[in-house]
Every structure is written in C-alpha cells, then in structure tokens.
C-alpha cells in the first residue's frame, strides 16, 4: 500500500504577523515561526498508523513551497514518513490552491498511490481546496473532514466517517485509490522518535523544480488588511489587578455576578 501525505508549511498564527501590502501577503520576517499545518499533522499520523497496522505500506510526504518548507518534510520523516518530496517554489506569497494541487497531482499521477491524505484546511489561506482539487485532477473519489477511517480487508475500499456540522457525522464507503482530507482530533500526533530524527538528518529529500504550470484562470489578491471590524468593544486598561477589579465591577453592574 502506497500512501502520499500533503504537508504545508504555515506561519504560526500566534507569531507577530505583519502585512506586506505591496506583495499582498504577510511579511517574511525573522520574528515569524513557521511550522507544519496543524491538520496535516493529523493526516501524517493517520498515514503512519495505517502503515503500522498493515505492515507493508510506505508513507511519502510531499510539500510545495519555498526552500524553507523543507523543514516540514524533515519533520515528517522524523514523525515516521518514508520519503520526502519537495517541489520548490520561490518566495512565499498567496498561491492559488489550483496551482499547488496541479503540481502535486502531476507528481502523484502514475506513481501508484493507493491513498492520498491532506489536511482539511490550511491554517494560512484557509481555502480547504487543495485536497479535493488533487482528487479532481487525478479523477479520484474524495471524502473531506474525515474523523475515522478503516481500510477494508481486501484493501479495495475504505470506510470513513466525515464530520458534518453540529455534531453530526456521515459514514461513507469509497473505493481505493482515493483521497481523504483529515480533520483534527482523529488521532493524537506522536512526537518524533530518536531513530527517526537521526534518519531524517541523513536522508536526502527528492527535490523537484516547479517548472511552468498551466493553471488556467486564477484569483489574485488585491487587498490585505486587519479586519476593520476589529475592536468595537471596550478595552479594559491598567495593571492586571486593576483590570480584574474593573471586570468584576462591570459584571456586577450587569448583574451577572
């Protein structure tokens, strides 16, 4: 069984993120920490769990991104992936999910993957498209927001629970090969093992240049800003002690306390 997992490097939302209006994206500064997209961590863990239960599976991880993105592939190997494939792009900026998905689909085509996993959403652009787009380009069936999966005994189909809204799950059966996007909470991503950390150090990544991709019509960023609705409420100022007292007064006034 061959599994491919898509990994994206994203800026840590908690980092001090600043806007670069001329480039229509966020500034690349030393102040920003980059890490693996949270949902991709769950996708990777699920792939590693499948390999552990089947015994004879390989887990490749692929990332499309700038040179810096190699770090998430290394992290992927540390967490148990077999191989890392890096499709290199120049500096970060807004990239249409269509472009990313094309590059991954072109790589995956004819390589015989039985299962492709991606995170349900990228935390930076929040487009939720790359997974289903890859499936479309490859003509694979797709299920999104998967919170449970089980590969059938004959390995020709997979039984999944997809999360809908408000606590409702749907059970679906898909033929293999197929693509799933994985939702957080499906498992508990592991920490790297020492042996895999050492292996990641030694092991080279497969590096490919993105080349030119025909991606048809795309969307372009024309504006970027902090939400203008921000802060309609009252900012409670002062020392921590004063803030606590002020809040208690407000809660009393409103008869909440």
């Amino acid at each position: 069984m061959k599994i491919l997992v898509c990994l994206k490097q994203v800026p840590d939302p908690e980092a001090n993120i600043e806007i670069d209006s001329t480039r229509g994206w966020i500034c690349e500064s030393d102040g920003i920490a980059y890490r693996m997209n949270l949902y991709d961590e769950y996708a990777l863990e699920e792939a590693v769990l499948i390999r552990e239960s089947l015994g004879d599976a390989s887990v490749d991880v692929i990332s499309v991104g700038s040179e810096r993105a190699a770090a998430v592939l290394k992290k992927g190997i540390e967490k148990g992936a077999t191989n890392g494939i890096h499709i290199i792009l120049d500096r970060d900026r807004y990239r249409s999910p269509g472009l990313i998905a094309r590059l991954i689909a072109d790589y995956a085509r004819d390589r015989g993957y039985d299962l492709i996993l991606a995170g349900v959403m990228a935390e930076d652009d929040m487009q939720c498209q790359v997974g289903p787009l890859i499936a479309s380009y490859l003509g694979l069936p797709c299920a999104v927001s998967v919170v449970r999966e089980k590969i059938g005994d004959n390995r020709s189909e997979i039984d999944v629970d997809c999360e809908l809204e408000g606590g409702v799950n749907e059970t679906l059966i898909l033929p293999l090969p197929c693509l799933l996007t994985i939702q957080s909470g499906i498992n508990r991503p592991r920490y790297p093992s020492l042996s895999n950390v050492l292996r990641a150090k030694e092991q080279a990544l497969t590096m490919l240049s993105a080349g030119t991709v025909l991606s048809g019509q795309v969307e372009t960023v024309v504006s970027i800003c902090y939400p203008e609705s921000a802060v309609k409420g009252t900012i409670i100022k002062g020392t921590p002690e004063q803030k606590a007292e002020k809040l208690l007064d407000i809660l009393h006034e409103k008869s909440l306390l």
Binding site: P13, V221, Y226, P227, E228
Partner: peptide
C-alpha cells in the same frame, strides 16, 4: 490566518 487578517480576492 485564523481571522487575524482579511484579504480581498478578484477571480480572473
């Protein structure tokens, strides 16, 4: 980015 930033996009 989790609602921290808003972008305006024009589809071609």
């Amino acid at each position: 980015i989790n609602g921290k930033i808003t972008v305006g996009l024009v589809p071609g």
